[in-house]
Design a protein around this nucleic acid. Sequence first.
DNA 1: GCACACAAGATTGTATACGAAATTGGATTG
DNA 2: CAATCCAATTTCGTATACAATCTTGTGTGC
Lengths: 225, 225
Amino acid sequence: MGKAEASSDRVAADLEEAIHEHRLAPGSKLNEDEVGAIYGVSRTVARAALQTLAHKRLVELRRNRGAFIARPSAREAREVFEARALLEPRTARSAAERMTEADLARLQAHIDEEHAAVADGRWGRALHLSGMFHIEIARIADQKTVAEFISQLIARSSLIIALYWQRRGALCESHAHHALIQAFRAQDGDLAEELMKNHLLDLVTSLDLRNLNSVPTSLREALTQ
Amino acid sequence: MGKAEASSDRVAADLEEAIHEHRLAPGSKLNEDEVGAIYGVSRTVARAALQTLAHKRLVELRRNRGAFIARPSAREAREVFEARALLEPRTARSAAERMTEADLARLQAHIDEEHAAVADGRWGRALHLSGMFHIEIARIADQKTVAEFISQLIARSSLIIALYWQRRGALCESHAHHALIQAFRAQDGDLAEELMKNHLLDLVTSLDLRNLNSVPTSLREALTQ
DNA sequence: GCACACAAGATTGTATACGAAATTGGATTG
DNA sequence: CAATCCAATTTCGTATACAATCTTGTGTGC
């Protein structure tokens, strides 16, 4: 028997995908009535969905003010990538050691779909798939607990990229993912760990975390923080 | 202005402390009406608190069945300690490098209070404080994101210990914590990392994760899972 | 014209009510 | 007597209603 997801889970999952695909910008207000109306549910379940996202740090709840898409600080951005650096390289090693043909095929499919999205100019979708690539690796490593943490960190990374990404060198990612697949195919754990480590370093250095030049939200939001 | 915590946060925090101190056993049913009555709040906020704990994997929600204190499987127990092994040693190193006198004093106070609790036979309290020692280290390392993950893992460890701890050698912990403080005092990052790594290995080996001999809950719970 | 106070509106926080699902207990039937 | 079916009870899932708080717009006094 399946797990019979609650309706609030469905709302939360849909909102989360919208965040991943950059259709919801950091700082956006999420009115409970509005969310409920969009998904045809009451405020009760809309509110539960927002609380779920708040626990994942994708949404910030302010008492008597409402729910807002999170706007990670530069410091938080660094912390997220430091946490990823602790978890993902070793996870990539584990994944390499347990990799099957089916897993490789699924990863390759991810990359292909990502390329297609890039070709179509669907940048949000491509970004989402790029994150899913990392999540898939964690899943293959067969460590649910770590995989969950990584999923959350990647979701937050999506917000960080929305805020701090500097355009230059947008396509470097897929190259790194290709190299990772090569290591996986060779079941070379050492190489996979090293490649993932460097990939994450590349990602961090492609961000501009120096100053707070990223305030795409209302002035009020920026000042009351 | 403070963060003005919601009332559901207070309920969740209190329930979590009860879990840490082993006053709530794994598998216990948490009736929404009952929880609400105990804390003098409506089912709405009791439910929100239970959802919060479910997100932390301390409570398991079963649709149309209710909320139960989580009962981690042996496999999940291994995963939790593997995740801790990825996060905590490096965090201990960072903490050692940033350690101040005030931090050392606070850690020492934790150990002292833990000893006092052990002397008084308050085992639950001692266990709680033992976990807090690890959380304090993560806080000192000044990495909120990682600290949050570690907090969650330690909370889950409390459930794991309730299920799988084998009594022999109950006091080994405080020794390891003392050794860690020595490393911190010397600001020896290498040593702190190594000590933490070994401490976690000791913890895992002090568990009996071989079989499912741990079913302190109702028969029904054990069979419907 | 500016600052402050106050009232109207909007939004969240919490409680309650109602419907749905599951469990439980007893009655019926073989 | 055992098995099964059905009703009664309990508990959860969701919607709605009311209260508290914050925002916003207006008016008054200086």
